[in-house]
Amino acid sequence: MTIPHISPVKDESLAAQLDRAINNKTKPLGSLGALEALAHKIGMIQKTARPEVREPAVLVFAADHGVVAEGISAFPQDVTWQMVENFLAGGAAINVFARQNGCSLQVVDAGVKHDFGQREGLVNRKIAPGTANFAQQPAMSVPQCMEAIECGMDLVAELPGNVLGFGEMGIGNTTAAAALMHRLTGIAVADCVGAGTGLTPEGVLHKQRVIEAAMALHADAQGGLQALAAFGGLEIAMMVGAMLKAAERRMVLLIDGFIVTSALLVAARVQPAVLEYCVYAHCSDENGHKRMLDFLGGRPLLNLGLRLGEGTGAALAVPLLRAAVNFLNQMATFESAQVSEKSE
């Protein structure tokens, strides 16, 4: 497997051109706040002073987790495949928000413990029927992990647009994400673990203890890919590959919530420049996500108390990307509108 090469977005001449264009619009300096930084970032990613949002897509990666056997979820494992059926029927929140905001939507079976057969709208990339229980053994073999990463890369290689949102579904995946977060950031396990789909305080404490025991079991899994194989889900591994390929293609990566950001932690260990292509859609209400964003230096666009996953936050952020590029491309300048500028 060849890891994509990701070029830094640094271009001082283009950065200055974008600054001039943004600052010369008919508004006080900085008055469009985060939209100005967003327009600048999209321009730098796309290497143009006239960026665009073209055919935005959301990929939802689904897989099961063997660690569910430890009683770390408030919902049974069957909910993973049942929710995939809901996605395919168009009835989930991500279907609603993707339709509303003009995003294409693909659902990817990365490793669901269920046989869906050939289904319209479902991309079958099943590596295995879920991971192993990482409380007992590594979640994935190294070849499985590498295959999942490569599948993610292949899925993105032919996408037509320039904005990609990431979503996921997998009962137990907040446990995998919390384990990755602790191993790759050094943040205390208690600060990484949350309620997931609705655990009681006692359930959260149990999840914390399961992760702490697994840390000792997999003490040698220190690097990004080693930690991914030890703790991660097949959907998380596939997202890592998709993120790396999307950044190589100079797409805007719309990062959703806690689990998607855990995949980014791994991708950034492999290729740190991937972070330069990321727009953080929102700050999840899942405990640990804000700390994860702070660790990555990510400033979220939205803070709505979401903790659903599925890529819902990413889809909701698409109109903000459109607003950013549209003001840059369509708003009058002081000169064109014959509006007086601020007095010195």
Rank of each mutant, 00 (worst) to 15 (best):
Q82E: 15
Q222L: 05
A177R: 10
V68K: 01
D19N: 12
A216S: 10
Q144Y: 01
E286I: 06
Y277F: 13
A98W: 03
A268D: 01
L14M: 04
A92K: 11
V60K: 02
N95F: 12
K207I: 06
L184T: 03
G165E: 06
S262G: 12
K41T: 11
T175S: 05
L159V: 10
A315Q: 07
E12R: 11
V67P: 02
G194E: 06
A237S: 08
D191A: 14
A49R: 10
G309I: 05
F334G: 05
A69I: 05
A221G: 12
C283K: 13
G257K: 07
G194S: 08
G170M: 00
A242N: 07
N162Y: 11
S343Q: 14
R322T: 05
F295R: 09
E55I: 08
K113R: 15
L199Q: 06
A190G: 14
H206P: 04
D294I: 04
F134I: 10
G232C: 11
L184H: 03
N287W: 07
M169C: 06
G71K: 02
A190M: 08
L29R: 13
P319Q: 14
G33A: 10
L205A: 14
L275F: 00
G297N: 00
C278E: 06
P28K: 12
V325R: 02
M215V: 10
G121P: 15
H282R: 10
L217N: 05
E276F: 07
F87Y: 14
D11N: 15
Q118Y: 08
A314P: 00
E276W: 03
L164A: 09
Q46M: 12
D19P: 01
T261F: 00
M215E: 12
A227K: 01
M1Y: 14
M146V: 12
Q338W: 01
E335P: 01
D64V: 02
K245S: 04
A39S: 11
L35N: 01
Y280D: 00
L321V: 12
G224Y: 03
S7I: 08
G33P: 00
A263K: 01
C283F: 01
H206Y: 10
K10M: 05
Q46D: 11
A39Q: 01
M181K: 03
H282D: 04
M215Y: 09
D11I: 08
H40M: 13
A314R: 02
L29I: 14
A62R: 02
G288C: 07
G203P: 13
F327R: 09
T80P: 04
P300T: 11
G232H: 04
L275S: 00
T312G: 07
T80S: 10
R250E: 12
R119K: 10
A49E: 09
D115Y: 15
H114V: 03
A190L: 11
Q330Y: 13
I149Q: 02
Q118S: 15
F116K: 02
V60Y: 02
Q144H: 03
T333D: 08
A21T: 09
R99G: 12
D11A: 12
L217G: 07
M140R: 01
G33K: 05
G186K: 06
A177H: 12
S13P: 01
T200W: 05
R54M: 07
Q106L: 11
D220V: 07
R269Q: 14
I22R: 09
E85V: 03
W81A: 11
T175D: 03
